[in-house]
Simulated scan of single mutants.
Amino acid sequence: MSDRVILKLGGSVITDKGSDCTVNRSALDGIARAIAGAHSAHLLIVHGAGSCGHPEAHRYHLDKGAAAGQTEGIYVTHRAVSALNEAVVSSLREAGVPALGVHPLHVGVADNGRLVAFESRHLEKMLALGLVPVIHGDVVMDLSRGACIVSGDQLVRYLAVALKCTRVGLATDVPGVLNGGRVVSEITPETVQSLQIGNSSHTDVTGGMKGKIDELLGLATAGIGADIFQVSRLGDFLAGNDHGGTKVRGA
Score class of each variant (00 low, 15 high):
Asp242His: 08
Ala32Thr: 01
Pro133His: 08
Asp20Arg: 12
Ala226Arg: 12
His54Glu: 04
Ile187Ser: 05
Gln154Pro: 00
Leu44Asp: 01
His39Pro: 03
Glu94Cys: 12
Gln193Trp: 12
Arg59Thr: 14
Ala38Asp: 08
Arg79Phe: 13
Asp204Trp: 05
His47Gln: 11
Tyr158Lys: 03
Val81Ala: 05
Gly152Cys: 02
Ala83His: 07
Val174His: 04
Ile45His: 00
Ala171Leu: 14
His103Asp: 11
Ser232Lys: 07
Asp204Arg: 02
Ala38His: 09
Glu124Gly: 01
Lys247Leu: 08
Gly244Asp: 09
Ala41Glu: 13
Thr15Gln: 13
Gly101Asn: 04
Ile135Arg: 01
Asp29Trp: 06
Gln196Thr: 15
His42Pro: 00
Pro98Asp: 07
Arg145Ile: 03
Gln230Arg: 10
Ile74Cys: 13
Asn199His: 11
Leu115Phe: 06
Tyr158Gln: 02
Gly235Lys: 10
Gly11Met: 12
His42Lys: 09
Pro189Leu: 06
Leu28His: 00
Leu155Thr: 01
Asp236Gly: 02
Ala220Gln: 06
Met1Pro: 10
Gly69Lys: 09
Glu86Pro: 00
His61Ile: 04
His103Ile: 07
Thr15Trp: 15
Leu7Lys: 07
Ser232Phe: 00
Asp204Ile: 07
Ala66Lys: 00
Gly18Pro: 00
Ala147Trp: 08
Leu143Gln: 12
Gly50Pro: 06
His106Cys: 13
Leu219Asp: 08
Gly223Tyr: 14
Ser201His: 11
Val150Gly: 01
Asn85Thr: 13
Cys148Ile: 04
Met1Val: 12
Ala239Arg: 14
Thr206Ser: 15
Ser19Thr: 15
Arg167Ala: 06
Gly65Ser: 08
Gly235His: 05
Val109Phe: 09
Val140Ala: 14
Cys52Met: 07
Val183Trp: 01
Asp153Gln: 11
Tyr60Leu: 05
Ala41Gly: 10
Asn112Glu: 12
Gly198Ser: 10
Gly223Glu: 14
Gly211Gln: 05
His61Asp: 15
Val156Gln: 05
Asn85Glu: 01
Gly211Glu: 05
Thr77Leu: 09
Leu131Ser: 06
Asp214Cys: 01
Glu94Asp: 12
Glu86Ile: 10
Ala66Gly: 08
Val183Met: 10
Ser90Asp: 10
Asn24Cys: 06
Gly152Thr: 03
Ser91Lys: 00
Tyr75Ile: 13
Val13Gly: 03
Leu195Thr: 09
Pro189Tyr: 04
Glu86His: 11
Gly250Val: 11
Ala171Glu: 11
Arg25Gly: 11
Leu129Asp: 14
His106Thr: 13
Leu178Cys: 09
Glu215Asn: 14
Ser194Val: 11
